[in-house]
Structure formats: C-alpha cells, structure tokens
C-alpha cells in the first residue's frame, strides 16, 4: 500500500504544517512516511505545495508526479494539480476561494468553504486544520484520534490555540462525514 497526498495553496495558508501533521500521524501508526516540500523558486501569490507519501513498505521514489489525492486550498493549485491526480482519488476543494471544480469525473470531490468553516471555529488561520481533518475523515488514511493528538503536540507550546484548532478539527470531520 502506498498513498500520496498533495497539499497545495498560497504561502501562509499552513500547507506545509497540515502535510506535516498527516505524515506525523501516519508515522505514529507505524507507516513509512516522507514529507516533500516544494522549495523551488515560487512567485508571491503562486502555489506552495507539499507531498506526503504514506506506505507500508520502504518508500522508493520521493518524486511523485501523479499523487493519489489532492487538498487544494486555492484556485491556482486546483488548476495546476487536479489533472495529475490518480483516478479514484479524493480532491478537496476549498470553495471559499475556488469558484470552479476539478472537471474530473473519475475522482471524488469534497467541496466546502474551508475558510468560512474556520472563521466559524474562531479564526481563518485554522483553515488548514479544517481541511486536514476533513480530508483525513473522508480518506480514512490515518486514525482521527492519532491525528488529533499530533495537532495537540504540535501546538503544545501555544496551548491557548488548541481549543480553537480542536473545534476546527471537529467541524472538518463532521462536514466530511455528512
């Protein structure tokens, strides 16, 4: 089993962090993982992206041209990466910022206003956690409780933001399960 998830959005949307949290949870469940950021030259307002590979075997190529799933937080990301997603994958579309769809009929789209949900939880900054938990619940790639623990650990030094992020987490899960 090997699954690849590409997280993509603007710089500042917490793309790298949500990818790291997914990798961390999978690692805790005993999987081999790799977290591969894009560190090439990027334009301001362009796409920041990051790929997580989760496997029950040693991970060979960390270079993933066709990811299994995509979490798209802004429009350029969806347009750039949706065509490469493997058939049968999940594409999460942040409809707060993306007025279009993937145009694919061989994938499962999970479309909801991620930013608005995060604002309901208390801050738009937790949009990455909303998207992460919704994706995790929809895909079943990692155990939700393990993932929740990883988020708490990540914010251990800023404990006052944990409740907001837990609320954001629950909202994301609930939307995915509807």
């Amino acid at each position: 089993m090997q699954k690849e998830v590409q997280f993509a959005g603007f710089g500042g949307q917490g793309i790298l962090l949500s990818a790291k949290l997914l990798a961390y949870a999978a690692m805790k469940q005993g999987y081999n993982v790799a977290w591969i950021p894009s560190y090439g030259p990027e334009m301001r307002g362009g796409t920041a992206y990051c790929t997580v590979v989760i496997s029950d075997r040693l991970i060979g190529s960390p270079i993933i041209k066709t990811p299994g799933h995509l979490v798209a937080m802004n429009r350029p990301s969806l347009e750039k990466f949706a065509p490469a997603v493997k058939p049968g994958g999940i594409i999460l579309i942040n409809s707060s910022l993306i007025p279009v769809r993937s145009g694919r009929d061989d994938v499962t789209e999970l479309v909801f206003p991620v930013n608005d949900v995060a604002i309901e939880a208390g801050t738009v900054k937790s949009a990455n956690i909303v998207a992460l938990s919704a994706f995790a619940a929809k895909s079943g790639l990692v155990d939700l409780e393990t993932l929740r623990e990883c988020i708490k650990e990540e914010f251990a030094s800023k404990s006052k933001v944990i409740p907001i992020n837990m609320d954001a987490f629950d909202r994301g899960v609930k939307i995915a399960q509807q």
Partner: peptide, 10 residues
C-alpha cells in the same frame, strides 16, 4: 542533494 536536505522522514 537538496531533496535529502529538504525532505522530512522518520
């Protein structure tokens, strides 16, 4: 190489 430096692994 750059990838080994930038990549996270357990």
């Amino acid at each position: 190489d750059g990838l080994i430096g930038q990549m996270m692994e357990p």
